[in-house]
Simulated assay, not measured.
Amino acid sequence: MTLIFAHRGSAGTHPENTMAAYVEAERAGADGIELDVQLSKDGQLVVIHDETINRTTNGKGYVKDYTLNELKRFNILTKQQHILKIPTLEEVFDWLKTNDLYCNIELKTSKIRYDFIEEKVIALIKRYHFEDRMLISSFNHYSIIQCYRLAPEVEIAPLYSEVLFMPWVYAKSIQAKGIHPNVKTINDALIQASMENGIAVRPYTVDKEEDMKRLFKLQCSAIITDYPEKAVTLRRKHT
């Protein structure tokens, strides 16, 4: 069965990377959530996609330039009346203790070098004994290789947005058990060949109904989608 990961939570229906979006993903029946991790000025693991807080909050500036306490003073922009805050990875993990969801952590290390972010993420995973429930991905493949060196028992998967030749060969070369390609860059033959070679395929961001149906029919390992409820409904009909 194709697993469904809720991209930044249920980002199509709720403010992305918020506890509200993750709770909605669980309610919708997703198998896991996907989230983005960066470091605050005081070295805390915070869950936010952009390197700046401009787009998603009522503040301005770089995540790295604010302490956690300062980041918590900003509100997430939302159409609802609820006041939502930037969560820490630890807050998300506390919530994950209440369910069995998988969690795909994307390390946002392509543009800014966050010192020891890999060590901090691995240490937190081990503290919560979540090794079997975590996937670590990044567009910066040096980051995930560092995670593998620190904890080979935690699965890593490279993110990429271009067409990759024989992606299963590359995945195996860096000790990854999966790949996370842009859905536009991977075809049915590459998906099947990767899976036949023991590499899980979890394309992002699968929001179109025809893409969901195609990938369910292929029994693709997983999809990463902004609309987990739609995906769960379609999976029921097409598997």
Results as ranks from 00 to 15, higher is better:
residue 27 R to V: 13
residue 101 L to H: 01
residue 207 D to A: 11
residue 46 V to Y: 10
residue 38 Q to L: 03
residue 60 K to H: 15
residue 104 N to G: 07
residue 46 V to M: 05
residue 109 T to N: 10
residue 94 D to P: 10
residue 178 G to S: 12
residue 76 I to A: 10
residue 180 H to F: 03
residue 32 G to C: 04
residue 180 H to V: 06
residue 221 S to E: 05
residue 190 L to N: 15
residue 97 K to V: 13
residue 109 T to Y: 03
residue 212 M to G: 01
residue 124 L to D: 00
residue 78 T to A: 14
residue 33 I to V: 10
residue 94 D to Y: 11
residue 203 P to G: 08
residue 209 E to D: 09
residue 35 L to K: 04
residue 86 I to V: 14
residue 217 K to N: 15
residue 193 A to G: 00
residue 238 H to A: 14
residue 226 D to T: 01
residue 196 E to T: 07
residue 85 K to P: 12
residue 178 G to R: 10
residue 66 Y to G: 06
residue 162 E to L: 13
residue 2 T to V: 04
residue 123 A to F: 05
residue 223 I to S: 06
residue 128 Y to E: 03
residue 216 F to T: 07
residue 159 L to E: 04
residue 102 Y to A: 02
residue 58 N to L: 05
residue 172 K to A: 11
residue 34 E to K: 09
residue 239 T to E: 12
residue 125 I to A: 01
residue 228 P to A: 00
residue 135 L to M: 13
residue 1 M to F: 09
residue 105 I to P: 04
residue 117 I to Q: 03
residue 46 V to T: 14
residue 184 K to D: 12
residue 45 L to F: 10
residue 75 N to R: 11
residue 88 T to N: 00
residue 147 C to K: 08
residue 199 I to R: 03
residue 214 R to M: 08
residue 39 L to P: 13
residue 139 F to R: 04
residue 134 M to S: 02
residue 162 E to R: 15
residue 92 V to W: 07
residue 138 S to A: 07
residue 115 D to R: 15
residue 136 I to Y: 06
residue 13 T to I: 15
residue 83 I to M: 08
residue 136 I to K: 06
residue 199 I to S: 09
residue 165 F to K: 15
residue 181 P to D: 09
residue 229 E to M: 11
residue 16 E to G: 12
residue 185 T to A: 15
residue 193 A to W: 15
residue 235 R to Y: 14
residue 214 R to E: 08
residue 68 L to T: 08
residue 23 V to T: 12
residue 156 I to D: 00
residue 191 I to K: 09
residue 15 P to G: 08
residue 133 R to F: 04
residue 178 G to C: 03
residue 4 I to A: 07
residue 60 K to A: 06
residue 160 Y to D: 03
residue 173 S to A: 07
residue 69 N to P: 03
residue 113 R to E: 12
residue 132 D to H: 13
residue 69 N to I: 07
residue 195 M to W: 01
residue 31 D to T: 06
residue 161 S to N: 13
residue 108 K to C: 05
residue 218 L to H: 01
residue 161 S to P: 06
residue 198 G to F: 05
residue 145 I to S: 10
residue 181 P to N: 04
residue 101 L to F: 02
residue 194 S to Q: 02
residue 110 S to W: 05
residue 166 M to S: 11
residue 48 I to F: 10
residue 44 Q to N: 13
residue 7 H to I: 07
residue 181 P to G: 05
residue 65 D to N: 14
residue 170 Y to H: 11
residue 70 E to S: 09
residue 2 T to Y: 01
residue 207 D to T: 14
residue 79 K to V: 02
residue 233 T to K: 15
residue 232 V to Q: 00
residue 143 S to F: 09
residue 120 K to P: 01
residue 197 N to P: 11
residue 65 D to I: 06
residue 67 T to N: 12
residue 201 V to L: 01
residue 102 Y to H: 10
residue 190 L to P: 06
residue 144 I to L: 07
residue 177 K to M: 00
residue 196 E to K: 15
residue 200 A to N: 15
residue 210 E to D: 13
residue 236 R to K: 14
residue 227 Y to W: 09
residue 175 Q to T: 13
residue 180 H to C: 07
residue 21 A to R: 09
residue 113 R to D: 08
residue 101 L to P: 01
residue 89 L to F: 10
residue 151 A to R: 06
